[in-house]
Amino acid sequence: MKAILVGAGATLAAFAPLPLFAQSDDASGETLSYQATDDSRSPYLSDWLNQAVNVVGSGHTRFGPQKVDDLYLEYEFFGRKGPLDVYGYIDFPKFFGIGNAADSGIWDDGSPMFLEVEPRLSIDEMTGRKLGFGPFNEFYIASNYIFDWGHNSDNRQNTLFLGLGTDIDTGTKLGLSANIYARYQWENYGAENENSWDGYRFKIKYFYPLADLWGGSLNWIGFANYDFGSDLGDESPIRTNNSLAATNILSLGYTHWQFSAVARYWHNGGQWKDGTQLDFGDGPFRVSSNGWGYYLIAGYKF
């Protein structure tokens, strides 16, 4: 669950050199594609904030101890204005009432909303100085805020990542950006690391235009979140100190419509230790936090 974009987030700055399209990368960042134009008769509502409503079908997602299948509604946005570079989305889990036994959402006492916002502020623009050097084009104060509005504190997440980001010139059509963060953890589904600074995250995002196809633009988008340096695994035998979520997307974009197929790999997804045995009252099961999941997305951009 929790968006393709969980951990995705694209930046217009990273993809600005592309001549025709600027595109975001996440699950919950990675699914938007917008034709760049200076025409005042733009087909979009905003001249800088790209927006979309998506229907997302997900299977075998591994952010928690059990694999989840879900069909949900998502509002997604990204853009660049002055020093602000922002990506975000709001998910409404199980919005259509469809999911597996491990899934719950807006209509059945689960989380009514899951959101992630990734604002970055350009240090170059705020200081009026060109700080980039070598392949590093621009530097940012980077943040990533995640909130899962569970029905009680044991079903709620409230996390802030704060650090430094940059856009990287590859000398090719490949758009590349990276962020490094420290993590402050408020609520975390009742885990032992609540209300503390606990660990770090390295995020890398990339975008590559593949071809014009069927009147649209076919793009390859990817991003990965590597969480490390946590103490959670030292405090609980069923958790880990690190985790990885790596995502690759094929995206076909038109002026208003967007279609994506997503494959994501988790290792210790959600910092749950793969293979451990748990029982939440419905019988014992083994944690499945290593492996692949997928998303299919259809979206309308406005």
Rank of each mutant, 00 (worst) to 15 (best):
F77P: 00
P65W: 04
Y89N: 11
R80P: 02
P83I: 01
F77H: 14
G64N: 04
F114A: 13
Y87D: 07
G110R: 00
D109L: 11
G88P: 01
D70R: 12
E74C: 09
E74W: 03
F96K: 09
D70K: 07
E116P: 00
N54T: 06
L84Q: 08
V117Q: 15
E76W: 11
V53Q: 04
D70L: 09
S111Y: 10
F114E: 12
L115G: 10
G99P: 07
R80N: 15
D108G: 04
L71M: 09
S111I: 08
D108Y: 09
S58K: 11
W107Y: 13
E76L: 15
D109R: 14
P65Q: 09
G59A: 08
L73W: 09
V68H: 04
S104A: 06
L84C: 11
D85V: 01
S104E: 11
S111K: 05
F77M: 14
F114P: 00
S58P: 02
W107G: 07
K81Q: 08
V55S: 14
G79W: 00
K94V: 03
F78Y: 11
G82N: 12
Y75I: 13
V117L: 15
G105H: 01
D85S: 05
S104V: 02
E118C: 01
G82P: 08
P112V: 05
V86D: 01
L115R: 10
V86P: 01
G59P: 04
I106C: 03
N100I: 06
A102H: 12
A101V: 06
G59Q: 09
G88A: 14
T61V: 13
S111W: 10
Y75S: 07
D108I: 11
L71H: 03
H60P: 11
W107H: 14
D91P: 01
D109Y: 10
L71C: 02
R62N: 04
T61I: 13
P112H: 06
V86I: 15
V86K: 04
P65H: 07
V68R: 06
R62M: 08
G97M: 11
D91V: 11
N54W: 14
G99E: 00
G64R: 03
K67S: 14
L84R: 06
D91N: 10
D85I: 01
F78E: 01
D91G: 03
V55P: 11
I98Y: 06
S111V: 08
N54H: 11
R62P: 01
D91K: 02
Y72C: 04
G97A: 09
E76D: 12
T61C: 10
E118G: 03
F63P: 02
D69A: 13
E74G: 03
F95D: 00
M113K: 05
A101F: 07
E118R: 04
R80T: 12
D109N: 14
I90W: 12
G79I: 02
Q66D: 10
E116N: 09
D69F: 11
P112I: 07
I98Q: 06
A102Q: 05
V53A: 04
R62T: 02
R80A: 15
E116K: 02
V68Q: 13
A101D: 08
L84F: 08
V117G: 07
V68F: 05
A101K: 08
V53F: 09
P93M: 05
Y72R: 07
Y75H: 13
V68D: 00
Y75K: 09
V56G: 01
T61N: 15
